[in-house]
């Protein structure tokens, strides 16, 4: 009987592959979002396995804020080639140039909120009816109630009261004109699961995740890396530190942590022993207690 036992990773992998196949089967024009972070890397690896030996039957799309670390972009192009996947890139800069959005002002203008508009424009441009994202329910309180298949109205908005109940493994992807879906195949994964899976699958990861020396500035408990997009405030100075990133996003708000973890195994040990959630180092969530819920209602991932 024990041969039929599944461990946690096998079970999570099986569920994620099932969800992706449901998306491929139920929707006409699905897309998978790719940010360059560990969650979307794992998700794209799962997509490769779900349809093997066939190709991934949908494109991947990167919404580039223009504030990405160069390492992220290099990795992205290399990994797409490895996967044999089709990549679409849409940039926040284009949305700014077209006057669709306005850049934030201040010392570290974040484009995190702006990318929502770029994303919705791209969904409209390609008429995507389902966009898969790597969000996990354990990340943040507002995500604990997110569905696998999350229906959005024609403005991309999420109405927590109008979400469909999800029972067993039956996912209702029927949509009316104008509606589209966000789908989260790795909803049930935790940060530790993600890293254990990376170790199991031996997925090469971007260098930003591993401990390295870099110039940083400490601001309100968040460690920001030196980049052209972050300017110093009065009394601040750049200082060297050994850091790594637990999440990879916009350079203006993705905080680093001081760490000596130089391998995936080190990271797993660190994550397993850590006392701060990964979003704890993100400046965008700290703005208010219900910050994530507000942004989700606007159409953020």
């Amino acid at each position: 009987m024990s041969a039929y036992q599944m461990n946690t990773l096998e079970w999570l992998e099986s569920q994620a592959m099932y969800v992706m196949r449901e998306v491929a089967a139920q929707f006409e024009r699905p897309v998978m979002l790719f940010s360059g972070g560990k969650d979307s890397i794992v998700m794209s690896q799962l997509a490769r396995k779900a349809f093997y030996p066939g190709p991934i039957p949908f494109p991947l799309m990167h919404i580039d804020t223009g504030h990405n670390f160069q390492e992220t972009l290099d990795y992205r192009d290399w990994w797409m080639n490895e996967l044999g996947a089709t990549l679409i890139v849409r940039t926040v800069q284009d949305s700014i140039d077209q006057g669709r959005v306005q850049e934030e002002e201040g010392p570290s203008p974040s484009r995190n909120a702006l990318q929502t508009v770029t994303l919705l424009d791209a969904i409209k441009e390609f008429q995507f009816d389902a966009a898969m994202g790597g969000a996990r329910r354990d990340e943040e309180k507002a995500r604990a109630k997110e569905r696998f298949f999350s229906v959005r109205d024609r403005f991309g908005q999420w109405d927590p009261k109008n979400q469909r109940p999800e029972l067993w493994h039956v996912f209702n992807g029927l949509k009316r004109p104008g509606e589209h879906f966000r789908v989260f195949p790795i909803s049930n994964w935790t940060e530790l699961d993600v890293w254990q899976y990376i170790a199991r699958e031996e997925i090469p990861m971007p260098s930003l995740y591993f401990s390295h020396r870099r110039e940083i500035v400490r601001r309100e408990g968040v460690i920001l890396a030196r980049s052209p997009h972050v300017s110093l405030l009065d009394g601040e100075r750049w200082e060297p530190a050994r850091v790594r990133f637990r999440t990879i996003g916009d350079a203006t708000c993705t905080g680093a942590t001081e760490s000596e973890a130089a391998s995936v195994e080190d990271i797993i040990d660190e994550v397993a022993a850590t006392r701060v959630t990964e979003r704890g180092s993100r400046a965008d969530d700290r703005r208010s207690e219900a910050a994530m819920e507000e942004r989700k209602k606007q159409g953020y991932f």
Binding site: Q5, M6, N7, T8, L9, W11, L192, Q196, R200, I268
Partner: peptide
Amino acid sequence: LVDTERDL
């Protein structure tokens, strides 16, 4: 802590 044989 990183034992991956845990079940669910």
